[in-house]
Design a binder for these strands. Structure first.
Lengths: 130, 130
DNA sequence: GTCTTGTTTCGACAGGTGTCGATACAGCGA
DNA sequence: TCGCTGTATCGACACCTGTCGAAACAAGAC
């Protein structure tokens, strides 16, 4: 616990659970686990579904709220929701006729903090590349 | 510009470029763009490569530093590096015989802030799910 | 020039993914 | 009970992806 890392910076990690991947090489198993979560985010429909659920009133949404905004069929939406659920990004529950989905913030926070870069490199130069 | 969002919370977004996806539904084009970046992160080998590059001394690594830790062939590593580069996550440059790769922090920061959940829901309950 | 080493590209292949229509299942109300 | 509506599963299909070995390309050494 005696690093050259400022205490406040470490506090974030403890709360969020993980050290940023830019600090030390990712363990093989951890990488496999994280890759599964990122794979769930690697489809535009799923990304929009997740965003739609999270920003929905009350923090949860019925499947019936989610099929409208998309050009794909209902079974396809159902498939994508399953992928998100199995990746641990959302939870779901049936209430009577309808099934509701909500985001699991801990999962997003885990990924967010993993991708965090050291303060200072926050980079206003987004988009510049080689 | 007159939201009910605290000024300090918005400051983060400005620096990082984007509003978290849990705040409002993702635009269709934006989602497609982001999905491309997440897809680059959706493979364990690429995740480890990225982490290896970022945490390497000097913030950059030669390809020759990157082939050792993996069980896959050198052309496969080269392929994965290309995917990371085309996703805008890393930059590269040839210097004499060797080719060096480095992480583009702006890209990681963009994704990180996108996944950020509202303060308070940071959730110490990671892993709990339905 | 030729050889050697580091890296990328090519062509091929097995396996995975997104999509659909059809169908099955779950719960409600008549 | 039957029928209706909301959601999940199934089976099929085109397409994408990760992997390899072989070959090409780049830069330096001889």
């Amino acid at each position: 616990m005696s690093n050259s890392v400022p205490a406040l910076a470490r506090l974030d990690e403890v709360v969020a659970c993980c050290s940023p991947m830019v600090r030390e090489p990712l363990d093989e198993e951890v990488a496999a686990d994280l890759a599964r979560m990122f794979k769930a985010l690697s489809d535009p429909v799923r990304l929009r579904l997740l965003s739609l659920i999270a920003s929905h009133e009350g923090g949860e949404a019925c499947v019936c709220d989610l099929t409208g905004p998309f050009d794909v069929s209902q079974p396809t939406i159902s498939h994508h929701l399953k992928v998100l659920r199995e990746a641990g990004l959302v939870g779901s529950e049936r209430r009577g006729t309808w099934v509701y989905y909500w985001v699991l913030p801990a999962a997003l926070t885990r990924l967010s903090s993993l991708l965090r870069t050291p303060a200072g490199t926050t980079a206003t130069t987004a988009g510049a590349a080689g």
